Computed example of a mutant assay.
Amino acid sequence: MSEGTMQRRAQRDDQFAQRATRTGGLNRVLAAALAVPVMVFAAACSSDSGSDSGSAGGSASAADGAQGAGGSGDTAASSAPAVEAAAYATLPSACKVLSKKTLTDLVPKGTSSAKEGDSSDTGARASCSWSSLDNNGVKGSQFRWLNVSLLRFESDAATGDAESQAQTYYAKQVKTAQTVTDAKNAKTETVTGTGDQATVVRYDLKKKEGAFKQQTVVARVENVVITLDYNGAGLAGEKTPSADTLTASAKKAAQEVVAAVRSANGEGSGGGSAATTSPSPSASASKSASATPKPTATKSASAVSKATASRASSKASSKKS
């Protein structure tokens, strides 16, 4: 091989090496250029994935928060104190709360004159009135008028327990009786042995027909308030009745009405003595709560088991025989 040939071959080898070097560099550039979009795409996908995850996590957190808030509300509602149930659920018939004997004493000429008051719910509000006129002609007349009103309260979450409502109304009725216009010689007296609370307010009232003696007894027994109005007058020159006598009769009648309310709710005998001796449901409940409970259900179950075993034994004996 000549020297020129060898030189040309060396030049070709150098050119080839240069081209290869340039091609390799270009390939690396192209590879790098192609890698950039891939990285951008991957980053975008990663970013989108993170956003979705964050949104889902945020939604889950919000849902958990709402659930937690709801749970707190339910807990608060369930932990709210319950209103104590009313002791009495019904009222007696207002025109039957007094015996014929009592009516004869209070309204001797009007025992059959009962007039029931209007009420859309006699189990919650009821009243009855009687009037008596003993007309002696030119010698004058004795007039008597009696009215009994009953109002029963129900427990309510908005207005409170029934007994507290009854206490408030009781105080209001006493105040009303004490503030009658033109009343004279007014006296207020606490009455014992008549329900849980009782007050009598008495006064004189001058009318065109004559001088009236008015007695108002307000009594409360559990969640029921009783207002008994009783007045009398001597008309056309007849003698004015004694306020003390009328007051004593009104007190006795109020006791009988209290007993009737208790009896209508399954308590006491309904007589006058029951008003002073029968314990109220609240007192009975307190005694029951403080007493040691008796396992009556357990005893009953045991008795049933023994009876069943006895019957089974008898049947087995019969089969053997």
Rank of each mutant, 00 (worst) to 15 (best):
L246R: 10
E256L: 11
S278K: 04
A259V: 01
G266S: 09
S269A: 12
Y230W: 15
K287V: 11
S284N: 10
A253D: 00
S282W: 15
I226K: 12
V225D: 07
S284C: 14
A254N: 05
T240Q: 14
S286C: 06
K239I: 05
D229M: 05
A285S: 08
P241D: 15
D244Q: 15
S249T: 12
Y230V: 07
A289K: 08
P281R: 06
S288K: 09
K252E: 10
N231S: 12
S280N: 04
V261E: 13
T277Q: 00
P279V: 00
N231V: 08
S273Y: 01
D229F: 05
A219M: 03
D244T: 09
S280T: 03
L246Q: 12
P293T: 05
P279G: 00
E222H: 07
T277C: 02
T240S: 14
V221E: 12
A260F: 02
A283G: 04
S282G: 15
T276R: 04
K251N: 03
A283V: 05
G237Q: 11
S278L: 02
E238Q: 10
G270I: 01
A264H: 10
A248I: 13
P281T: 08
K287S: 14
S282C: 15
A236M: 04
G271L: 04
T247E: 09
G232R: 04
A275Q: 04
A291S: 08
S263K: 04
P281E: 11
G272A: 11
S278M: 02
A289H: 13
T240W: 14
N265V: 05
S286V: 15
S263F: 00
S263R: 02
G268N: 01
S284D: 14
V225Q: 04
P293C: 12
T240P: 14
T292R: 13
A275I: 00
K252S: 12
A274W: 03
V261D: 15
G234M: 12
V221F: 13
A250P: 07
Y230E: 11
G234S: 05
T276L: 06
N223Y: 06
